[in-house]
Design a protein around this nucleic acid. Structure first.
Lengths: 223, 223
DNA sequence: CACCGATGTCAATGCTGTTGACAACGGCGA
DNA sequence: TCGCCGTTGTCAACAGCATTGACATCGGTG
């Protein structure tokens, strides 16, 4: 019966995985489901990846293999904004994969390149010391991951009670005003747009970087 | 053969789960393993929890059921620091559970109470408007989750190559100086203590809150 | 043509969570 | 003391999972 109908390769398999993850969520990612998506036997995948874990690692690597398009004419603040937003958008593209990624950070080359870019912007652009830049870069990384995960949680849940910000606001508004006076009062303002929140925190970091860069170089503003 | 030796209840089961999660990681959390830890049949658990998911939700709820001890005599900055550190420490206690929690945020009452406390500090303490406080509280939440997850990633991996900051620094130092000039140069300063990083970002937020609270009250604070 | 490595297929293995039938316990009323 | 019965532990079984080894088929090379 071996009709040998389909011919697979790593890319087409990863495409199928990405398709399933996007439409049905990472929970539905089983070898059998991937096989059916490809129209092939599930175990055929093992001819191209050692196991499921390796397959997902490759997918994560592919997610970060294209870097942001940065206009080096812009001020470093704007470049940094574009850079961070690009990383954040990777999480937006496939919310679940962020969580997945967290479990297997086999130092992907794409991530190292992103870190290198960020450090470059902080050192050459903002004029931070290497040490300052190293610290801030980790803080920025956490900022992206934190917001990305928050977004993932909001989008992930098929349960609309959790996924819909409006519903969450209503739920908080109905909380006991005795037990949770502040949360119930703040309900209308909670669960805002994740993108706005991301940008607000980004601005906060940029201001902090500007302040930190001030003291060291006395009179060096623009090159 | 039904010796009926052990007598279970929800608490003792959750204790066992927590014990296994702490010592062997969430990956080893199987009903059979939990059963063996309890010296009982795995399926006995189903007499106390509808399924594994509900069991883990209850565990997560228990993790956040005790709030931080806050000295209301202290300035709000210090109270907020204690508050955030408490939440962060929950993630430190069981790194894996943070990731677990991200997947099933069945609006735990403990988390709502934490949010309420934070909002109270921002409104009554720092003097922010309700709207400002709502925005900042989400940013703070992301801060905690982001750092918690970062910590989880560091601690989680049994693979010492990833878990050991020293090894990561060495790996980055060996990167090609052509391809990753900044990352290789910044290597000695990367992968610092997560606690320090957490506190640094906390300070950054507190400064931002102070600045944001400034405009309303004209002359209050130094200088 | 014959060969042979690469790759798809199939059956089987040992995990997993979960369920339904059964059995033992312990508290209840008589 | 008896019998009842709900609660809860036990056991065998099931479906679904990732993975493996034996086998079949393809496509290119001599």
């Amino acid at each position: 019966m071996g009709s040998q109908a389909v011919r697979l390769d790593r890319e087409s398999i990863l495409d199928a995985v990405e398709r399933i993850a996007a439409s049905e969520g990472v929970g539905k990612l089983t070898m059998r489901r991937i096989g059916s998506e490809l129209g092939a036997d599930p175990t055929a995948i093992y001819r191209h990846f050692r196991n499921k874990q390796e397959m997902l690692s490759c997918l994560a690597a592919r997610m970060f293999e294209t870097g942001p398009v940065i206009d080096r004419e812009q001020p470093w603040q704007e470049q940094l904004r574009v850079h961070l937003r690009h990383a954040f958008n990777r999480y937006r593209a496939h919310p679940d994969l962020g969580i997945l990624l967290a479990r297997q950070p086999d130092d992907l080359p794409g991530l190292v390149r992103l870190a290198d870019q960020a450090l470059g912007l902080l050192i050459d652009g903002a004029g931070l010391s290497v040490e300052q830049a190293a610290q801030i870069s980790h803080q920025l990384e956490n900022h992206v991951v934190g917001c990305g995960l928050f977004f993932a949680i909001s989008e992930y849940h098929r349960d609309p009670r959790v996924a819909d910000p409006e519903a969450m606001r209503r739920a908080y508004a109905l909380l006991s005003t005795d037990e949770y006076p502040y949360a119930s009062a703040a309900a209308p303002y909670l669960f805002g747009d994740p993108d706005e929140m991301f940008d607000r925190t980004t601005d906060l970091f940029i201001e902090a970087i500007e302040r930190q860069a001030q003291p060291a170089p006395a009179a060096e503003e623009d090159r």
